[in-house]
Design a protein around this nucleic acid. Structure first.
Lengths: 161, 161
DNA sequence: CCAATGTGGTTGACATGTCAATTATAGGCG
DNA sequence: CGCCTATAATTGACATGTCAACCACATTGG
């Protein structure tokens, strides 16, 4: 029988492809995050939280629901909400049905910060990402994302159920 | 004339592709870094530094050269080398020709840590990345990396020369 | 009812990253 | 030589991320 996948050492081409891919996506991420920070004074984490809250009913969400929605650990979210609260971007209130719980609420200031950031952020996405790619490449990027995302989801379920 | 690139708002498909791509690559990165940390007790930053030093003549490099090679700011490297030195993975020595300079040297312990980490790390790359992709998708990933990397390099030169 | 266990969330300790300021030396030039 | 500017690297302050420990309330079985 042929060797199974995952059994053989990496070829030079495989290693090169991996390094190019991971280093470039990392570079892209920091470039976009840097633009967001310098254009609008908010971090990528801030943006992610603001966006999710802005789309929630009444602009509020249970902490654990928010953490699930953006794929963060609860501890990370708790620290981040603390920092955002200190800056007035969100507020924290006790949850209605469960006295253990907390809800994060988007403040007017947070909503304004999100609005102000959107146009420059979209501009950066276009300039640094979309403008670089042909339609075929963009489709390939999406295909890659969906394939890898599905693969990772399977691994997560398989190794830590 | 047709509207220039970068002038129009993002379409839904463009935004969805961007989000899928950036969030998935981020997830992949943290997954691989987590494996490296739990398998071998070293961070992605440690690995990057150890690898670069291990391939340098006499396993030593000037700080600024090392920073350029791995694309880090010197301040970041200085902090990181300080932590690695404390753990015995590298040592710092004065540069020969220039009394301002510092050289980072790979210690035996650092070399051993790199060796021990390689097999599990390659295994993780295969399992979480290569195994997910068809040969065509891997080629597409490499093509995307090269296109985006070139594009970003152009932007860097254009906006901060 | 109430003790054991589970769940939601916070906290503290520490690793990592960025930015601006600082220190020390090099090199050019009057 | 002695000043001026540039370069190499470090430092401090602070934002962010992870992990493990913890607190408070909820739930449930006897």
């Amino acid at each position: 029988m042929p060797p199974r996948k995952g059994r053989t050492a990496l070829t030079r081409a495989e290693l090169d492809s991996w390094r190019a891919f991971i280093e470039t996506t990392e570079e892209l991420r920091t470039a976009i995050e840097g633009r967001l920070q310098s254009d609008s004074g908010i971090s990528a984490g801030d943006y992610r939280v603001l966006l999710e809250l802005s789309e929630a009913p009444e602009r509020r969400m249970r902490s654990s629901h928010l953490a699930d929605a953006i794929g963060w650990e609860r501890s990370r979210l708790s620290h981040h909400l603390g920092r955002m609260e200190k800056r007035g971007l969100i507020a924290r209130e006790a949850a209605k049905g469960d006295n253990r719980g907390a809800e994060a609420v988007l403040t007017d200031e947070g909503r304004d910060a999100l609005r102000r950031s959107s146009v420059p952020h979209f501009h950066a996405i276009r300039e640094l990402f979309l403008d670089a790619l042909t339609p075929e490449q963009l489709a390939a990027a999406r295909d890659l994302a969906e394939t890898l995302s599905g693969h990772l989801a399977g691994k997560r379920g398989a190794t830590a159920p």
